[in-house]
Amino acid sequence: MVDAADALRDAQSRFEQRLTRDERVEPKDWMPDGYRRTLIRQISQHAHSEVIGMQPEGSWITRAPSLERKLILLAKVQDEGGHGLYLYGAAETLGASRDDMIDALHEGRAKYSSIFNYPALTWADIGAIGWLVDSAAIVNQIPLQRCSYGPYARAMVRICKEESFHQRQGYDIMLTLARGTAAQKAMAQDALNRWWWPTLMMFGPPDAESDHNSESFAWKIKRYGNDELRQKFIDQAVPQAEVLDLTIPDPELAWDEASGHYRIGPIDWDEFRRVVAGDGPCNRQRLAHHRRVREDGAWVREAVEAHADKTRARGLRARVGTGSR
């Protein structure tokens, strides 16, 4: 017993030293249960967000107004699926299985970013999502590239690299609309009006009210507070809106010379809590779609399993060439 307790103390101190030295924690390393749980929760929530996030934009692939936009949007939504995969993969290194994570999503035990519970009503929403939502996501994700958990940090490096195209194509759509016909410009303004505040909510409640935060900081999963990241996003988005000649829907928005930051009006946190709790415009629709797709594919899943079993039983080697270096 003493040996086991000693070993645990050693492992714990190795873990803490690693964090102090800013080394990465890797899958086979000992880690506290809380660290593992927090990561699984955060990474799976992040993965679900990517996958659920395919829905609002995905619905516009078949309706994109030019062939070039269609290709770009399809490639972008496909990337989001890829990001979901990188993240599910990172979570699986912690012992969570993707099926379990998806069950948790369907049963409401796991959440996804509440931004995707808002509808994409017009083509300009595709611009606004790329510009605002993806920019906000990047602001959130850049520090995660240095997260203490290696597989998560590496997934974020890959994701951030790919996301910069997402953000730019969104801004490019907004720019084209804002410089287009009066109807197009109105469409762009309307999209900004609807997406601005929900985007600010993506950074989470003010630090003073946020749960889970202190441990996440100690574990070097999180490195900046919600308010700080939100401010960073606002400071970069406001001048971008000016270039578009669109108006941010906040009468209290003002430049504060003293702090060197933009000040905004109050965020409607009641709305945020309502949407997170499941009462947003699209919560039910998003989950129902995700469930339906899984059910529709059940026969395919069963078929590939059965086929693999048959192939094994026949003693046939898989057709892939046996590669050597």
Partner: peptide, 11 residues
């Protein structure tokens, strides 16, 4: 895209 049997197949 987003409707195939699983995520890998979507891609």
């Amino acid at each position: 895209c987003g409707k195939s049997p699983w995520l890998e197949e979507d891609l």
